[in-house]
Amino acid sequence: MAVKQRIVVVGAGSIGMRHGRLLTGRDSLSVEFCDPDPVALNRAFKEIGTLPGHNSFEKMLDSKPDMVLVASPHELHTDQTIRALKAGAHVLCEKPMADRLETARQVMETANSTDRVLDYGFSNHFHPGILETKDIIERGQLGEILYAHFHVGTYGTLVNSRSRYQADTEAALLMDYVHQPDLLYWMLGKNPVGVYATGGFGGNMELKSNPNSMTMLLDYGGPLTASIHLNYIQYPDRYHFEILGDNGWIYYDLINNLLFLGDRNKEKLSRKEIVFERDVLYEEEHQAFFDAIAGKRPPESSAEDAMQSMIVLEAAIQSWKMRKRVECGPF
């Protein structure tokens, strides 16, 4: 009988429990949880089933797990990822890479000095509608890309947050939705040269985070420009993006899973419904991580890849605080 590989999910919040629930469906794995809060561990076991648990990250690493999945609060990502890599574990870390660009560089240095796999959880890379959008762009169907826009309005994120960490974490909105800068880089193949961000904090709502609304304008040193709007205000949630080229455009409604494709030359508009289960995104993310460990493919989102969104995140936070455009330098 084959020995099961041990994977420890660090952080028993909502995203950690989703990972844990899906990983327990793999017969080749022994899934464990690590969280210093016994209430969080008990809640996870009540929902998923009783699993081996750890309340000490240090002692968990001393037990030499094969893999560690970091789903803890943002400010712990750097330290836990570095220590897990140094302990000999392969690491899949939830986004963002870190809460600061400086500490993200430390992670990359550690990853480059080990033979362990480090992958980041940008699960939207496995979203069928986003994959189709990327394919359309790469085939040149839209022509030269001139503008891109992302909109995420999700008070629902605060409602569904178990720890409510967003209330006490400055710029949690940007860190929670660093997906958007990542997707722009992943789909367009380039990062902006500068960012101007403006944000606000207010409203008569029970749950808040500072800022609870932010808009970023991204310039690329050429005709391409982009914008990202994020808010913890809209409820029910809204999530959509559009990509404009000189031959056509895409508008994708990610709440209703509808993709619209406009063809300028044919003067034609097509509409397609994208049907999928959200759990599949995480299952495919897990499989890509395991395949990278097995040497079948590179990590889907390496440390170098994740650094691209960290550059934009850092610039946006600085711009918001200083109220001026901030250049995006190399990492």
Rank of each mutant, 00 (worst) to 15 (best):
D99H: 11
R325D: 04
Y165F: 13
L101F: 10
K86P: 01
V159S: 04
N256M: 10
Y177H: 12
G222Q: 09
D176S: 09
G222F: 03
L131S: 09
Q180K: 12
H77M: 12
E144T: 14
K59Q: 13
L217K: 10
L174V: 11
F45V: 11
H149D: 10
A315F: 00
Q106F: 03
D62M: 13
S209P: 02
L281Y: 07
A40T: 08
F289I: 04
E102K: 14
A87K: 00
L188D: 06
V193D: 07
H149T: 07
F150R: 01
G53M: 07
E206P: 03
P236H: 04
R271P: 00
N204G: 14
A40E: 05
G202N: 10
A315N: 01
P128A: 09
G194R: 14
N191I: 13
G25C: 06
W186E: 10
H179V: 05
W186N: 03
I255C: 11
N42R: 14
A316E: 03
A12M: 06
S28L: 08
H151K: 09
I243S: 00
I137D: 03
M205I: 13
D62I: 05
A98C: 10
L101V: 11
D253E: 09
A84I: 03
M307P: 03
G245R: 01
E132D: 13
V31H: 00
L146T: 12
L69G: 01
L188P: 04
H125A: 09
V3N: 11
C93M: 13
K59P: 01
K59V: 03
E94M: 07
A294K: 10
Q106N: 12
R6T: 15
T169R: 11
A111I: 05
P65A: 04
P128F: 08
R43V: 08
H125C: 15
R278H: 15
S213P: 02
Q318D: 10
Y232V: 02
T215P: 02
K134H: 13
A315P: 01
F331G: 12
I255V: 15
L118N: 01
A98N: 01
V280Q: 14
R164E: 12
M216W: 02
N55S: 12
S163N: 10
N112Y: 05
E132P: 02
C34N: 09
L269V: 15
M60A: 05
